[in-house]
Structure formats: C-alpha cells, structure tokens
C-alpha cells in the first residue's frame, strides 16, 4: 500500500478519495490497484448521511446507510429485488461495513486489474488488456471495448437500474444534482480508467428508489453464497391483469456496467408472460452480446437469468 493520510474535513482533490465502509478501497489499496494520496474519512458524516425515509412513491436511502441496515429495514423488505440483491451480496460481515453509496461504486473483479503484475488499461492507461484473448471466462460479453472487457460485479446497482432509481450527488462546491443510476457508470470505450460520471470531489449522498411494480432479482453463481454473479438479472414489471404494461430489465455480471436491456423490455410490453416470452425477452436482452469461445456459456446463462427473473417477478406479483 502506498503512503497516504486520513482526514475527516474537506473534500478530495486530484489523487485523493473518499473512504466510507472501505471494503473495496482497502482491498484495492492493499493490492496496489489503487493508490490515493489522501483518504477523506466519511465516518464522521455517518449519522448525517444514513437512514431511510419514504414517501408514497419513493424510498430514499442515505448513501452511508450500510447494506446490512438497508436490508433489514421494513421498507426495503417490500422491494423484493432490492432486498434480494442486498442479502445475496458478499457476506454478512461485508454488508455490515459496506455502504450503499460505496457499493454502487464497487470496482471490477477482473483478475488482470487486481493483479498489479499484469498489464491493465484501467489501472495503467495504455498498458494493454491481456483479458482480451486471455482468460476471459468471467469477463463482459456486453459493453466492452477494444481496451477493456472488465465486468461490473455488483448487484444493487443492477436492481437500481431496473427500478429507474436516482442518486443525489453533492459536488465539492456544495451544489447538489440528481442523476439516474443508469447514467452513473460509464462503458470503458477508449478510457476504461474513467468509470463513472462523478467528478473529483463529488459525493453520492442519497439513493432514491421508486416503489411499485412486480419485481425480482436472480443471481446465478457457482456457489450458493459469498460469490459474485456469473450472470444476474433484475426485472420490474407493471401488469394489467396478466398483461405486461411496462417492464424494466437490467443485467449484472455480464456487462462492463449495470446493463439496461431495453430491447428485452419491448419484447415483454403488451405480452402475457409465459416461459416462451420470458426466454424471448432473455434472447433479446443478450442479442448484442459479443462472446468468445471461453465465455459464450454466459450468454445462455444471461438469457436464463432474465427468463427466471421475469417468471419470478410474475410470481411475486400475485
């Protein structure tokens, strides 16, 4: 870990970073995959920026609310997909530490990014991407570029995209703005080191989750717990009887960012849900996938995750 100092007041400038729960930051600092010169500890702001409130149509969560505290709140238990995404993430210990804002900003698990002995365009711009043509079994089949195919690993952000959730961002000058979670993460393109729309000093202060809709989050992985998604899908359906009036679908574990599957939503709209339409929507969600020989199975897995999530959401609606 490179040298740095920790401070409580002020706002990060270039080379510095916020630290909240620390579960991603400390991990990556130890690996040497990130090396901020100064950490701004948000611990003192914990009380001000945590807690859950609700109106008739929205649940607002302070960004420093821990994943554990959020998961056990009655309002969140009512949002099935959110609750599932939270309790299936990481481990009970990590959920006690990690904050929701920090979780949205979780970094990739790409092994080349994490192993500082390997080149990585995200870590060292221009050094190359050995994942492309390398061991890419868990890399993105959607949203990649010629510079980077690192998968966004989180669960909660995927559900946020499916819900149409928004975040409040406070800039270093104290001004606030709201953006959809869908606009938070950036595809790698030619600049994989720029991962989000946040500017230096920006702080996510709150997350706003719309209520309503039949919803489900399906996380597929190779062990029952304490593992990242091999493929996941979040679905929110609005139904009129048995017919879908609107649908929002997002994919996790398959793309470089939490992935909105708009094409799949169109497939569902106006249709009755059965296994055939569920799989048709899954097919549509993955139609733009660019798999390789070694990760092609995850396209099929993504289709199945979407199908399962649609069928489960329908089940959750009654």
């Amino acid at each position: 870990m490179s040298a740095f100092d920790i401070t409580e007041g002020g706002t990060p400038v270039d080379g510095a970073a916020w630290i909240a729960g620390g579960t991603t930051m400390v991990d990556l600092m130890k690996l040497g995959a990130t090396a901020p010169s100064r950490l701004f500890d948000l611990g003192a702001q914990r009380d001000a920026l945590s807690g859950i409130s609700e109106t008739s149509d929205t649940i607002t969560l302070g960004a420093l609310t821990t994943m554990a505290d959020a998961a056990k709140h009655p309002a969140i238990r009512g949002l099935t997909a959110v609750h599932t995404a939270l309790v299936q993430a990481a481990s009970p210990q990590i959920r006690e530490m990690a904050t929701l804002g920090g979780n949205l900003l979780q970094r990739t698990r790409c092994s080349y990014f994490r192993d500082t002995r390997q080149p990585c365009n995200k870590r060292v711009p221009g050094s190359g991407c050995p994942a492309i043509g390398g061991e890419d079994g868990h890399h993105a089949v959607l949203g990649g570029s010629a510079q980077c195919i690192a998968t966004y690993p989180g669960d909660f952000a995927v559900v946020c995209v499916a819900l149409g959730a928004e975040i409040t961002i406070r800039a270093s000058d104290g001004s606030e703005r709201k953006i959809p979670v869908q606009d938070l993460h950036r595809r790698p393109g030619a600049t994989p080191h720029t991962e989000t729309a946040l500017q230096t000093g920006d702080l996510i202060t709150a997350i706003h989750l719309p209520k309503g809709g039949a919803q489900s989050y399906i996380k597929i992985r190779d062990r029952a717990s304490y593992a990242f998604a091999t493929a996941s899908a979040a679905v929110v359906l609005h139904m009129d009887g048995a017919m879908v009036t609107s649908a929002r679908i997002a994919l996790g574990g398959l793309a470089t960012v939490p992935w909105r599957a708009a094409t799949a939503e169109h497939v569902l709209k106006g249709s009755m849900i059965d296994q055939k339409t569920a799989f048709a929507a899954g097919e549509a969600a993955l139609q733009d996938a660019h798999p390789t020989l070694t990760n092609a199975h995850r396209v099929e897995l993504g289709i199945r995750a979407v199908a399962k999530a649609i069928l489960s959401a329908r089940g959750n609606s009654v």
Binding site: I6, G22, T23, V26, L39, P92, Q93, I94, E96, M97
Partner: peptide
C-alpha cells in the same frame, strides 16, 4: 456488529 478487521483501517 461483525466486521472484517482486514478491511478496516485502524484509524477509521
């Protein structure tokens, strides 16, 4: 509350 002491900076 249970936490992981390996990911917890002592000063925080």
């Amino acid at each position: 509350k249970r936490v992981l002491s390996c990911l917890q900076l002592a000063q925080t």
